[in-house]
């Protein structure tokens, strides 16, 4: 049984939550963006989490022992397909013929709550790594 592979699981959780936070912050930063390289207003993005096997240097040996568990990974970043929000701003350079500007369909409150969730998830994974690190240290101390 390897305690070291548990560190990889915790790290995978940290990486996934960090990526989620990145996407959420990008959404908030672009809440008023009307121009993108793809054309049109920014569209909010969301991550999809999927449980996965973690790559560990000795994984092949240990996979044989405990088969069902693993870490987490971001399997996909999905783009919100909902229609942009239209605001009447005739003076805006991106206004259409009727004077309406397409703005991203964003919900900063929702993004903030999600961001807090990501932050808590990250902390929980850090705590897991800390606990396992302590167990490894104690195993090493048996030799002292």
């Amino acid at each position: 049984m390897s305690l070291f592979s548990v560190l990889s699981i915790g790290a995978s959780g940290m990486a996934a939550q960090r990526q989620r936070a990145e996407v959420l912050v990008e959404n908030m930063a672009n809440a008023e963006t009307t121009r993108t390289p793809e054309g049109g207003p920014y569209r909010r993005k969301d991550v999809v989490f999927e449980s996965s096997r973690v790559a560990s240097p000795f994984s092949s040996v240990f996979d044989a022992q405990v088969d069902a568990v693993g870490g987490v990974a971001v399997s996909d970043v999905v783009v919100d397909p909902s229609d942009p929000e239209r605001r009447y701003m005739p003076g805006h350079p991106d206004a259409d013929a009727n004077g309406y500007v397409a703005f991203p369909h964003s919900n900063p409150a929702e993004d903030m709550v999600d961001l807090m969730g990501a932050s808590r998830g990250y902390e929980a994974n850090v705590a897991a790594i800390g606990a396992v690190k302590d167990m490894i240290q104690r195993s090493i101390d048996l030799l002292r």
Partner: peptide
């Protein structure tokens, strides 16, 4: 502990 870490990583 491995299972617990895995559960935490997959909390979302």
């Amino acid at each position: 502990q491995r299972l617990v870490a895995s559960n935490i990583a997959n909390a979302d």
